[in-house]
Design a protein around this nucleic acid. Sequence first.
DNA 1: TTTGGATGTAAAC
DNA 2: TTTACCTCCAAAC
Length: 296
Amino acid sequence: MPEGHSVRRLAIQFHDVFAGQRLAVSSPQGRFAAGAALLDGHRLLSSEAHGKQLFLGFEGDLWLHVHLGLYGAWEFGGDETFTGASSIGAPRRIGEREVADSGEDVYTGPPAPVGAVRVRLVSEHGWADLRGASRCDAATGPDVAAARAKLGPDPLHRGLPGHERDGDEFARRLRSRRTSVGQLLMDQGVVAGIGNIYRAELLFRAGIDPARPGTSLSADEAAGLWADAERLLADGVRDGRIITTEPGTWTGSLPEEHEAFSVYQHQGSPCPRCGTDIALRELAGRKLYWCPGCQH
DNA sequence: TTTGGATGTAAAC
DNA sequence: TTTACCTCCAAAC
């Protein structure tokens, strides 16, 4: 379930709590035993997110490549040094739904593994457990480069050196295909990091019908989608959740689940812009939400 | 207590 | 286009 914003938060978290440290790497569940043995005892040097893929770089050009899939999640714990190092609020779990760290216990080392822990990373001050990932591989530098070459530009790379033309590249990939724009926004080779929620909300905000072929989009429409994706995903990194509605439309200081979106899971409710009932249909095996009244 | 669906993707038909 | 992956949780029995 995590879209690009969650994976970016994970990359930040790994950098904050583990960068530069030697890690014990194990696979309590056993399914990653061989890969864990390759990485065990190496120092973590880098932590990168590209779309929904997480790449943890260890000494010796060794990498841990993780994709959370639908329900994967990382859980973290440690002493005050560890939780205090986190710049994103010391979350206990980052994945399908974030859980805050209660932080009430005195740290006495990593707990006995509970459930199917695919990977456990342990430093002097804390630990991280991975469960339910759809991908978890030990990789070399060339493996990582090959995986990243399959991905389109990531709206969260805004402002990084070498990414000045990412918006143009997105527009080129989007506008060159006759596939529907609803499908293209979910294609990680067109744009990396967008999932079902951002897809629905971006097209609604742009007033674009998801059924339109990519080739029918104007340069301005493509540029607008890219700029809005940059903004919405950056907001998601900051907030730790996807929110695409405005503060004035919420009942409280933070939106309830249903208040955070305009169309996602709003089927049958009136469109906030034109009053037409929000529609729902399946597209390529995923649920597509849109307003037939004002998305053209 | 069981079922089904989920912010995802690849492989099999 | 459908199935499998393999986890959590809410809704239905």
